[in-house]
Structure formats: C-alpha cells, structure tokens
Design a protein around this nucleic acid. Structure first.
Lengths: 138, 138
DNA sequence: ATGAAGAGTGACAACCATTGTCAAAATGAT
DNA sequence: ATCATTTTGACAATGGTTGTCACTCTTCAT
C-alpha cells in the first residue's frame, strides 16, 4: 500500500525466487511469510525461511507485491492484478480479497495533508469484513 | 480505528491505571506500550510492563484510546479528543498527529463493501507524511 | 472497621514474527 | 571452466507482546 518503490535492483534468477513467485502466482489471497514458507515445504519446494522473508521484502520494495499488516501486526503479501495504486476489501475469516480503486479517497487524503502542511504523504486503507460465503455459514 | 468495543467491563481503580491514564492524558501523540512504560519509569511512577500492556489493551477494547500499527508493526496508542469515529494524519518523523474526519470516506467504504456483499465491515485508514516542522528541517 | 472474594499486579518465562550472521553454494559474465 | 559477486540457509539474536502464578490491593457486605 505504500507509494515508494526502488529502481528495481539487478537480481539473479534462482530456484528459490522462482518457487516463491510460483506460489504467489497461484495464491489468490494475502499470505504471510510463515504460511508461504510452509506452503513451499508442503510442495516439496523447500526454501529457507530467511530467504522467503528476503524475497518477499524485495518484491514489496519493487512494488511487485502488495503488503498489508493484519490486526495482529503480521505482514501478509499478495500479487495483485492491477498495477496502479489501489486498496483491498478483505474477508476477516477466509481472507478472500477484492481489489478496489478509490480515486475520491486519494484526492481526499491529498487535500487533507496539504491543508495541514504535511508533505511526502502516503496512506494505508484496508477494508475488513465478512465475505458473502463466510457470512452465510456464520 | 476499529469499530468493535465491548460493553466496558467493571474495573477497579488502581494506582497503575491512574498512572497510565495520566501519561496518556499528557501525551499529545501516539505512543507505544514500551515507550509509555519507559515514560512511567522516568517519572518515578513505576508500573509493570505487563500491566501497561494489559491496561492499554483494555482501554483500546473500550474505545477509550485509539490504536494504530506503525509500519514496523508496533502498536501505538493515543487518547483522542473527539469521540466519534475518525482518522489520523501522522508525522512519520515526530508523530505529530492531526485528527481528521472523512464522512465521504466512510460512505465510500460502506458502499464498496455492500457492492461486494461483505458485511460486518470495518476499516483502517491512516495518513502518514512529514509535518511542516519536520519538513522544514529536513 | 474488618474480612472474604476476586480483580489486578509484576517479575519472569515463553512466544513468535522478523532480522542478523557468515560460511558455503549458485549465478552471470569473461 | 573461472572468477567476482550475489544468494542462500541454518542458526542465533532481537524485540514486541502475551502467558503464568503467587502475591497484593479494591471492593463490598457485614
């Protein structure tokens, strides 16, 4: 959700990064580093935990994955369809995610910041709820 | 920033809770549990770390303080002036905070959620930037 | 007041996500 | 193939937060 993203440093192609990419590609919802690591193990594509953390961090820095912090403070990652800035509507229970754009919100945050003289502004906005499926069986 | 807040359990008045309250009252900006604990120590009003955590958690559950998670995942607490739902414009550097209300944003999140059939919706929205003072000396 | 019942406290251990370390392994260019 | 450089991974270390549990303090009925 942050705005800053580096000039994408030169990187080497490694089995580990390919593995992380693959799982991210196939994972529809936000997933934590720990869970991604576990997913890799269970597929037999074992990758060191530190490497998973490093890879995700790099992807996040390059803006190739979105990061969000759950209410417990744990970071979760997701490869998003749209490239432009957007936000997420996330199911509290199953993590089902919908990408949403809110031009009005973007304008509003900018104007609020300017109004108070704040510069170099970024913002986080996530919407949490129960998706239709989970609400039904609740 | 969350919506849920319990029916405010019965609580006893203790020296420790009064101390935490006092510091919160005098602290303009968001402060972490660790920092609050340190502040208490330095004032000679020593309170156990676990107690500080418990007290802040209770206050947060009762909606008496607002909580926000910094980018590093650390939780920060603040006693806010306005009682109604609102958001914060926070200085990345010095933590200077401005409370802002955004009725339009509230409406927008509700409509987005409804549009996708999500219920029991809550949202987090924080704006980070550099306050005028910090921007000047940067 | 006084005492009983139970909430609250604190020192410490335990947790757990995340980061640091560093020697060994893998990669890309020559 | 060779070498300079990047990357990896097992493990230690960090740091915020929560769990534990015997002891202390509030509260309230007597």
């Amino acid at each position: 959700m942050s705005l800053q993203q580096q000039p994408a440093k030169e990187q080497r192609r490694t089995r580990q990064r390919a593995a992380v990419d693959e799982v991210l590609e196939e994972t529809e919802d936000f997933i934590s580093a720990q869970d991604l690591h576990a997913a890799l193990r269970s597929r037999g594509m074992s990758v060191g935990l530190a490497t998973v953390y490093r890879t995700l961090q790099t992807l996040a820095d390059n803006g190739q994955v979105d990061v969000l912090h759950t209410s417990s403070g744990e970071a979760a990652y997701r490869r998003c369809a749209r490239d432009e800035h957007h936000h997420h509507l996330v199911c509290r229970s199953c993590k089902a995610t919908v990408e949403v754009a809110g031009p009005a919100v973007e304008r509003w945050t900018r104007s609020v910041a300017k109004e108070h003289g704040y510069v170099d502004v970024a913002h986080t906005l996530e919407i949490f709820g129960l998706c239709p499926r989970c609400a039904a069986q609740a």
